[in-house]
Amino acid sequence: MGHRDIPLLETKRLILRGPTAEDYPDFKATFASYRSRFMGGPLTPYETWMLFAAEIGHWEIRGFGMWMIHLKETDEPVGMVGGWQPSQWPEREIAWIIFPGKGGKGYALEAVDCCRRYLYSVKGWEGAVSYLDPKDLDSVRLAERLGCTRDDAARTIDNNDSAYRHPGPAALANSQLADGIALEIAHYRDPLFRPEGWAID
């Protein structure tokens, strides 16, 4: 069979790496917890194991999938991000989950920004959506920071979710939005960060 290679992506703070058996305990802990409530969880150990196996198989079948997000400095896993499209998904999705206790550090913003640029520039995606539970306010807010807008005309998975449409490659290139995302990521990395040559009030 034609094996798929999972690319390794890096940002300033993060390494995105394909899921392996060593990542299963963190995945299991997350999907056993209330944290997974917007992703069909909490799940039983059996369901969790089958889902994790499917995360890996997704890469083989689609040629893209979910990466594990690791902190560069400690290798600690903090969540998952990537492209996701099971059958019945109307469009290709950019999906994310941050593990319990790892939120609020801007990891999801940094990881989604990185993976979105990869999917656009290397995989040739012309756009993407994220299917969000309207009650998942953290994710809705993240989508907005990433420049997504709610697309009420788009088909959703089961009508209980909203489709948030990502800006396409052209809209992102050299945009104020892209600069704003980069600036926000830089501030998470270094709260005292001051960009040089920028007008600051």
Binding site: H3, P7, L8, R17, G18
Partner: peptide, 8 residues
């Protein structure tokens, strides 16, 4: 870009 090991 570094390429990781195959899926399986």
């Amino acid at each position: 870009m570094t390429v990781q090991t195959p899926v399986t």
